[in-house]
Each structure stands twice: as C-alpha cells, then as structure tokens.
Amino acid sequence: MSTTNAGLAKKLGYKNIRVYLEGEPAWSEAGYPTYTSKGFIDTGNIVLIDLRASHKAVEGRIKRAVSVPYDDLEDKINDIPRNAPVILYSDDKEEATDAVDDLRSDGFKHVALVPGNYAGWVSAGGAIETGPIASTEIRWQRILGKGEVSVADFKKATDGGDPDVFVIDSRTEEEVAELGIFKNTVNIPLDEIPGRMNELPKDKKIYVHCSTGARADMAYQELKKNGFDVKFLLLNIDEAECDCEILRP
C-alpha cells in the first residue's frame, strides 16, 4: 500500500521519499496522538467525549458529544465501551493528549482527537449544540462484523427457541469436560471440523462458538468455504452478556 504509492511517487520524479512501514498502529502504540475527520465525527459509530469543564459544554459542544470533564475521566473510564472508537476534544492541547494517553494506557485501542480541538471544529464549520445536557450516559452499540451472530440470536438457539439452527462448540473435548457445554449444542473441536463436515446439516444455519471467538472465527471461515450457512459468536462466553444456560458435567 504505502510502498505502492511511494513507488508511484518515485516514478513521478519525487526525490525525497520515505516510507513509514510500521504505520499508524506503531504511531499510536508509541503514545503519539492520532486525529479523526469531520465525517467520522458526524456519522461514525463512535463515543465522542467533551473533556472541557461542564459549563463550557453547556455553552456549546460538538453534536453528539457526551460531557466528561477531564478531572472526571478516571472515574468514568469504565463507563466507556472498550471496543468503541473514542474521539476526544478539549480546549487545552496538553489535556487532550494526556487524555489520549490515559485511555490508551487503560487498554483502549482506538482513541483519536478532533483536529484543532473545539476551536478547530467550530472554525471548520462543524455542527454544535448548546444548552443543558439531558443525559451523561455513554451509549454505544457495536456493529456486528462479517459473519458474526448477535448474542440474542445465539442465546435463542441455545435456549432451543430456533430449531433451524445447529450450534457447534469448537472448543476441545477437555475444555468441555471441565467447563460444561451450552444446551442444544454439539462439541466439534476446531481441528476436527474439516473431517466431520458430513455430520453437519446443509439445510440449517450453523452457529459456532468457542471461548472467545478466535477459534469460532476460523471454523466459520472453513465452513463458509465449504458452502455452509454459518455465523460465529465473537464473545468471551464468560462475560455476563452471554447469559446462556450451561449443562455442567
């Protein structure tokens, strides 16, 4: 990608070309700030946080922003969904970059700043809203990725409420023996799936799960390649969100 562009630029006669092969992930990992764009702030599936003092947010804030003054950030950090892209702005450059640091050190992977902070947004003609803030609740819903089944649909199937679904537990036999298995679920360890496809119904939907979703994703790829109507659960089944009934050994 970057190397392709660099090659094209070289052909066009540019003399001084470098490629930052490690790219944006390395930049973020090194703790340096990244910036987002207006379109993403307007319509992206993000959590937008106004770090300024709350009276400033009342006077005027970026549309959709939630007010979390920087002094409160540490207390509220667990209210911010960890999978969400988090966009921050302030009226103090240092405070904004400190907040990026705080979130990243706490494990947030996708944190970026509004270019030029609040003033930059206003001068770029971005949409603002004013007046009292009705709710300080941070709301965000992850959009399911390709091939993912929703927790609700998955739970319905393991509860026996969807006879058109065949559920596979792709963990090892040892894990199942130790931890139990969901109801209405068949254990086929990931490495046995390629050899046991004849056991799977072609006329039903297949949901695959494992302990976190990593193996289920691989099983999904393999089954999809073989023409099955398949989805996988990307979720740590230990989490409270997955409140599926377990048959204990």
Binding site: Y14, I17, P25
Partner: peptide
C-alpha cells in the same frame, strides 16, 4: 518534487 514525502499505511 524536492519536498520530503512520508507514506504510511496500516503497518505490517
């Protein structure tokens, strides 16, 4: 064309 260009993408 003398100016420094730095290209990057999503890393390796």
């Amino acid at each position: 064309k003398e100016q420094l260009l730095v290209f990057y993408c999503g890393g390796p």
